[in-house]
């Protein structure tokens, strides 16, 4: 007798196939979010806020209500939605170009206000959709279309560590950085996103999860090489970990 141990999440549209490049990390994170929404039975009560970049296509994939926002302003739109409808579950899905570069001011102030929303930020260290320009999180020495000789600190500064900065804000209930490279890391990523969602469901404050994801096209690597590049190089600059967890502090 066979038992079904895994199936496509119900919150994903049946014909909503992902349109990302082969090996792109977005698909794994979107699937994790859909699985968690199924587990918490929030499909009818969720409002997702999409952003600008590769993370824009939420309504093509999710069987949920989705609102679009201008570049970097998803946390503001989410704030408005959550304040009007406090019983709804509101999350934003953003890339590093959106949440950490163009809209970092909005992200910080949303964290300082302690809005009861969740942000999932995909960090692939460049602006993926527009052809791989450098973003704030680009590593020193990384070659992108706007840093053809590698990022130089004297000219363009050092990489920004979003999860640590958000963890320093008082309104933040949960801030973590995870990666989706191996099966173990994917499980940990799911647990981190679960905790960030629970912070909102319990009304503790702002949940922020930064996910290191591969961008094989703009890194000019094969998918398997790109995943190993995260484990070997990017995690040295952007270390994994939980930087703030209010629910764990309370139980101590």
């Amino acid at each position: 007798m066979e038992t079904l141990v895994y199936k496509r999440p119900e919150s994903l549209l049946k014909d909503g196939q992902f349109t990302f490049c082969p090996g792109c990390g977005h698909g794994v994170v979107l699937r994790i979010i859909a699985e968690l929404i199924d587990e918490y039975n929030l499909k009818k009560d969720t409002i997702a806020i999409s952003s600008v970049g590769c993370s824009i296509f939420l309504e093509k994939f999710f069987d949920l209500d989705v609102a679009g926002a201008s570049h970097g302003r998803s946390p503001c739109v989410a704030t408005g939605v959550k304040r009007c409808k406090p019983d709804k579950f509101v999350f934003t899905y953003q890339g590093d170009g959106d949440a950490a570069t163009i809209g970092f001011n909005e992200t910080i102030h949303t964290a300082c206000r302690g809005e009861h929303i969740t942000t999932i930020m995909i960090n692939n260290t460049n602006f993926g959709m527009t052809g791989g320009q450098a973003s704030a999180t680009t590593l020193v020495g990384q070659v992108t279309t706007t840093t053809p000789k590698g990022r130089k600190p004297e000219l363009t500064g050092y990489p920004l560590h979003a999860a640590e900065i958000i963890a320093g804000c008082e309104g933040t209930a949960y801030a973590a950085r995870v990666a989706i490279t191996t099966s173990k890391n994917i499980r940990q990523a799911k647990e981190a996103i679960r905790k960030a969602f629970e912070a909102q469901i319990k009304g503790l404050g702002y949940g922020f999860v930064e996910v290191l994801a591969a961008c094989p096209t703009n890194w000019h690597m094969k998918p398997i090489e790109a995943v190993k590049h995260i484990d070997n190089i990017i995690e040295q600059v952007h270390p994994l970990g939980v930087f703030k967890d209010v629910s764990a502090q309370e139980t101590k």
Partner: peptide, 9 residues
């Protein structure tokens, strides 16, 4: 990444 493996038994 593409949910191409849709069922596992």
């Amino acid at each position: 990444p593409d949910v191409a493996i849709k069922e596992v038994y």
